[in-house]
Design a protein around this nucleic acid. Structure first.
Lengths: 244, 244
DNA sequence: CTGTTGTGCTAACATATGTTATTGGCCTCT
DNA sequence: AGAGGCCAATAACATATGTTAGCACAACAG
């Protein structure tokens, strides 16, 4: 366990796209949990069928929501980055219909059910902001569906990179046009509904065309405008305030 | 405009999967709107970029959420059937990131923003049920993503048919193992991220294998167990009470 | 009655992506 | 220092799905 008062920065930054909080509200959020836990890559946070007793808050590191098919294939249906909450509403649905696991070593905080429900009841503005973030998650799912249904491998990967870059920038985790991407080519494949071999081919082409650099988990987007154009990337679905 | 006291049956049936309502609560829901409007196929209910002032309730007929790409391709990201609400939370996000249009002639009721917000505030149990239904919509999106990412055309279509059958049964719109399917092969293609030609091929194969009959918009599932097995259909994501 | 339009169906061919296999680099463990 | 494991890279080949085109039929409008 570690202590760190800056836990909640990224969440507050994200929610600020919905509404600014007062000092008091920010403190309420910061009071949801004071400690975080270090966990290592691959740790399964929540499993399909579970009825979790906590909301998990991702302080550092990446995680993924995914489903496994009977024959072992895996589809990642969402990527979680620092500042993301795993299912604010986890108590509304009776049972998890998917699993969540860490994509990298990470630091997570747990918010007990009671605390969460009480806070939502006592501070409607915070409750609304949390719901807002759930709705944004849903919007992202819709865009991913468009991505899978209508775009080819090249456009699809480009779109993912554009999205991740914006989301990471929002919480201050980019450096210039680059960021740390803790996903192997197999992880990317499971995200995009493609095979690792084809992800590799596609990455090679992106490098050839001088769109990106990717070495040992560090992605640099060399030409973001062209990448966005290729992906037909329109950030409206992220519902950010600053349309940039 | 027409009057009809049974408007709200399908919605109440659906929400019953979350919680039973008292007589009084049921009346509150029925009081959300007393009139419905007939509209014809293709009518666009809400367009990307809109800031709607009403929640739309689908009384009869089908609708689809979709996004259009710059080159005209369309991806359907959700199918709405009677009893479905178009965005309870429409006022939480500032702007629509997708459109909704009718897939058939339909009857819709409009619930004014004020009424909706007031009801959510006054009757927390109803509010929670509405949120529950939003979460189920999100779960469906996740399953669709798995469908697109991991299943081939045959399995994918099979999965869609299984889902639609269950959802329609829930609101009493099936007859035996059949139901009315107001989607052309092009509509199915836009839903599955495939071409109409390939949808046709796939339907032919389903007929050959005696899985379905489909003639002039009437679908009959001839062997539902086999279809579910092919699709690897697990209804848990619909979060129904009766696991059937 | 006749043109028009939408929809379903089929065929021949094109291509994006999957499959299987091999290789080499880089860690980590012993 | 060697053994084992994970990951990236590449090649040769297989196949699911896309593309383009054409025909038939029903619904509908003039």
């Amino acid at each position: 366990m570690t202590q760190d008062t800056h836990f909640w920065r990224p969440l507050l930054k994200r929610l600020a796209n919905f509404s600014e909080f007062t000092e008091e509200e920010a403190e309420t959020i910061a009071g949801l949990s004071a400690t975080a836990q270090r966990l290592c890559v691959g740790t399964v946070l929540i499993e399909e069928g579970d009825r979790p007793e906590d909301v998990i808050y991702l302080v550092e590191g990446w995680a993924a929501r995914y489903k496994i098919l009977p024959d072992g294939r895996r589809q990642i249906v969402a990527i979680l980055i620092p500042g993301d909450l795993c299912d604010v509403q986890v108590f509304t649905l009776k049972e998890m219909d998917h699993s969540i696991a860490l994509l990298s070593d990470a630091k997570v905080a747990r918010i007990p059910k009671r605390t969460m429900l009480q806070t939502m009841e006592d501070t409607p503005r915070i409750a609304r902001a949390m719901w807002w973030s759930t709705l944004v998650d849903e919007a992202v799912l819709r865009e991913w569906l468009v991505n899978m249904g209508q775009r080819n491998a090249f456009e699809r990967l480009a779109h993912l990179f554009c999205e991740l870059w914006l989301r990471l920038k929002q919480v201050g985790l980019t450096s210039g046009h680059g960021f740390h991407l803790p996903l192997s080519q197999e992880g990317l494949a499971d995200t995009m509904g493609l095979t690792p071999v084809h992800i590799n081919r596609t990455l090679q082409r992106m490098r050839e065309e001088r769109l990106i650099t990717l070495r040992s988990g560090e992605l640099v987007i060399e030409d973001i405008e062209r990448l966005q154009k290729i992906a037909d990337f329109n950030p409206n679905y992220l519902h950010l305030l600053q349309r940039k």
